[in-house]
């Protein structure tokens, strides 16, 4: 079942990234994470040929004794980063511009699965919270292998969204429930009252969490490149209005961009990472962009 979500190719791409060191430096590791090489749970990963100039302390002399070659040991470092992925499963997330494209909720599922896989591969604890106007599912953060399957199972069973987006109050609930000082990864289109969302996010920050928001949008929501008169129906409220998009395009874009900029600015003020994503953004680029950004925040 998980194979339908997370393909081996994607896993391989993520696996080649050197993400662990960066996460450690950013201080999300609790306790011994001050130094990446002095954690209390260091696991051997592989051998690498010694490069002259490196400290000699890492040379594995036993191997030298057997093979007469210098090798150094590479350790995979274990962290206790507690990450919780919040996936917005409200009605607006089911929007897709046409039948062949991915909806925002589908994209969020894939991205959440990818992130879970990545984080578990780093031995980090990963949890999942599916929210709309209420908490739909909750998987507490754990760093065990089978956690992946637990998360993927919940992601597979996201119910057909029927609710309006009102994640603000739910964010408060989640913030109360989660232990302090973790990483919150929010996958949402944030189509809710900006004040309520910000209020929830502030609660996370107050509880010592680092927050990353993957702002998921469909390119059509940004460009509004529809042609011809049509009756537009709101996925959340069911309201509809008959308009000619060509007449409103410019004005819509202005309003929309104004809203996005407002969100971005407020998040910057709260020291929250805000990553613009669209459903056609490749996963690897999305994740790498995020991780690089984290690295720059060091």
């Amino acid at each position: 079942m998980s194979q339908s979500i997370l393909t081996p190719d994607q896993v391989a791409k993520l696996g080649n990234l050197d993400v662990i060191a960066r996460l450690v430096v950013e201080g999300f590791l609790v306790g011994l994470h001050r130094s990446p090489y002095h954690g209390f749970s260091v696991e051997f990963a592989e051998y690498r040929q010694y490069i002259p100039g490196e400290p000699a302390t890492n040379i594995d002399w036993r191997v030298f004794g057997k093979s007469d070659r210098y090798y150094t040991k590479i350790y995979a470092e274990e962290t206790n980063l507690r990450a919780t992925i919040l996936v917005d499963a409200s009605s607006s997330m089911s929007f897709k511009s046409d039948e062949n494209t991915t909806s925002k909720i589908e994209y969020a599922r894939l991205l959440a699965a990818s992130l879970t896989y990545l984080l578990l591969k780093q031995n980090d604890a990963v949890g999942l919270e599916l929210v709309s106007d209420k908490q739909l599912a909750s998987v507490p953060a754990r760093a065990v292998r089978k956690q992946l399957f637990q998360v993927l199972k919940e992601l597979d069973y996201i119910p057909e969204p029927k609710s309006t987006t009102s994640i603000g109050p739910v964010l408060h609930k989640v913030a109360e429930k989660l232990p302090r000082r973790g990483l919150i990864i929010l996958l949402s289109d944030l189509m809710d009252d900006p004040d309520e969302i910000m209020s929830g996010l502030k609660h996370f920050r107050y509880r010592g969490h680092e927050v990353v928001i993957f702002h998921l949008l469909n390119p059509q929501e940004i460009e509004f490149d529809y042609r011809g008169e049509a009756r537009f129906e709101d996925l959340e409220t069911g309201n509809n209005m008959k308009i000619d998009p060509t007449h409103l395009r410019t004005s819509y874009r202005e309003k929309f961009e104004q809203w996005r900029t407002g969100l971005r600015e407020e998040c910057r003020g709260l020291k929250i990472d805000f990553v613009d994503m669209t459903v056609d953004t490749p996963f690897d680029r999305a994740l790498m962009a995020y991780l690089r950004k984290r690295a720059r925040m060091r």
Binding site: R231, L235, E236
Partner: peptide, 24 residues
């Protein structure tokens, strides 16, 4: 004959629509 389009939120359209429908 008007086609039907589901859209994530009409909030921004409603804001943009003000004062334009009549002249259109």
């Amino acid at each position: 004959k008007t086609k039907r389009v589901f859209f994530s939120s009409l909030h921004f359209l409603e804001e943009a629509q003000v004062n334009r429908s009549r002249s259109i």
